[in-house]
Design a protein around this nucleic acid. Structure first.
Lengths: 146, 146
DNA sequence: CTAAGTGCAAATCGTTTGCACGATT
DNA sequence: AATCGTGCAAACGATTTGCACTTAG
């Protein structure tokens, strides 16, 4: 399962990426980034819990501030997979579309290829450039269909 | 603009639809339904403000409870067009997909035809039945593209 | 040393709930 | 008259903010 392993890797030289833009490389930021990488679809709450396994006392507001920063720097992204909190992943992993089943809640990731026709149609017909990484499709999965 | 006008009309015999299912037809429910019809993409907060133009003292929790009921009865639906509160419309108007521009915030409604290829592909490839009415596509509109 | 980052607590936003009173059937 | 619905206030979960203290550079 080399693919899953690759997708769970923190961006190389994450600290340099921060410093290059004038931000500081702190242990908290490293921990958040690692947690996001390890967890996959994780809410800020999830990330906080994971981080606290490694270091005690990292505050939830630091989690929020860090996720915001990392997103702004293009290292992570988020998607809304339900009514509650958004979920974060590494930006490197973001290149997929989420299918969320309304009945069983199952989340399937499909390649952007699957939505290529949509992207093309919207580009041509509406002059609209789709942000594929943020696309979530709600519906009903195979097992839950009548 | 007959289309816009039609799309802003409250379902006929809304009160009968309620009574037929054992619910009561109250002035508050009528006001909420009318507000949703009039406003289009409206948050519960928006609906509350609109309703209070017509009648004072309609409480926000009544707005929430009523929207939930009307949605359950299939008279309205909601979509998530951004980070904040969801927006409601008449179910009759729901048969469209939302394009949300990340730069200027503009919301464009496109016909489900535009996403037909996606729906078909997901059905065939993933055995997934897409809920088109709830589909929101984020990206960048023509005016904001580089 | 000094600005940037963090922890903490309080504030805010959106939404839900318990309960007593009022309105529809 | 009997329920159902509403208003009110409090509770709630998720997120943000102000401020004093800590730390990376």
């Amino acid at each position: 399962m080399a693919q899953a392993r690759d997708s769970e890797r923190v961006p190389q030289a994450w600290d340099e990426q921060l410093r290059a833009r004038g931000y500081r490389a702190t242990p908290q930021r490293q921990l958040v980034l690692e947690a996001v990488a390890r967890l996959g679809h994780a809410t800020p709450e999830d990330v906080g819990a994971e981080v606290r396994q490694a270091a005690r006392g990292v505050n939830i507001s630091t989690i929020y501030r860090t996720l915001e920063l990392l997103e702004q720097l293009g290292m992570v992204t988020h998607a809304h997979l339900g009514h509650g909190a958004p979920t974060y992943h590494l930006a490197a992993d973001a290149d997929h579309v989420h299918l969320v089943c309304r009945s069983c809640g199952k989340i399937t990731e499909v390649s952007p290829e699957a939505v290529r026709p949509l992207v093309t149609a919207l580009d041509a017909g509406q002059d609209f450039e789709t942000d594929v990484g943020h696309l979530t499709v709600f519906g009903r999965c195979g097992q839950c269909r009548p």
